[in-house]
Nucleic acid binder design. Structure first.
Lengths: 120, 120
DNA sequence: TGGTATAGTATCAAAAAGAATACTTTTAGG
DNA sequence: CCTAAAAGTATTCTTTTTGATACTATACCA
């Protein structure tokens, strides 16, 4: 927690969902439900095994996801969003909404700039 | 926008507020109102001039903040949250709330682990 | 003439994040 | 005995982000 000397708990929430992969992992687990390690790999062909492991471990550490190991051979490990993790959903939904609107906003802006080009 | 091949507009919203400094800059502009470049520097003693410039430029690019230059000498440049930028406030508030609650959650968890230590 | 102030750039170094690749364990199946 | 499958580790890069430091333009002030 010493990463954020400045007050402001926004950063605490931010840390749960930032990174190149976390939002995508969360999306898959929230929308698609429980998934095994290699299922996630298949869903995200560009992530490396290492990055997937690291991200899952972090999310687990933060109680956002749950990891269940079935002592079989070959091993089976299932990941799912935790009850606590579900409390992030409204936030993620709002962000999704805002993101959509922002894409519109920027599209509009581009058009305006394009139209203004006759003035240059 | 090619940074996010994967659907999911959460990342778009995320980009407006992530980074080591952006949440803090936004906080100052939202809570404290219009600020000059060096005022922000004083408010964030650890940021370098370069990082402050880069972050402000990005936020401006994204229409989140406004930059007004007064053609005086020495120059005066004022930064403020834009009307559009204000649409982020509910999001930031929710994140703040969630962050607070999460700190509580983790504190509770730590205590539990501490109590469990007698069992090891 | 030199110093001060503001709001930056420019350049290079360090640190953090991410990617590539190879290797491990265990048991079943051929 | 050899191979396969799942879920990782370990090690070594490469890339991206940040940081440190120095430098600039302009006009006013002593």
């Amino acid at each position: 927690m010493e990463k954020h000397p400045q007050h402001c708990q926004v950063v605490v929430a931010l840390d749960m969902i930032v990174g190149k992969w976390k939002p995508i992992i969360l999306q898959h687990l929230i929308i698609g439900g429980t998934k095994r390690f290699n299922e996630l790999r298949r869903l995200m062909p560009d992530i490396t095994q290492r990055m997937l492991t690291l991200n899952l471990r972090e999310l687990e550490e933060q109680d956002i996801i749950e990891r269940v190991v079935y002592p079989e051979v070959p091993p089976r490990v299932e990941y799912s969003i935790s009850e606590y993790g579900k409390s992030l959903e409204p936030l993620l939904d709002s962000m999704h909404e805002w993101g959509m609107a922002h894409l519109e906003h920027m599209k509009k802006k581009e058009k305006e700039l394009g139209a203004d080009d006759k003035s240059s």
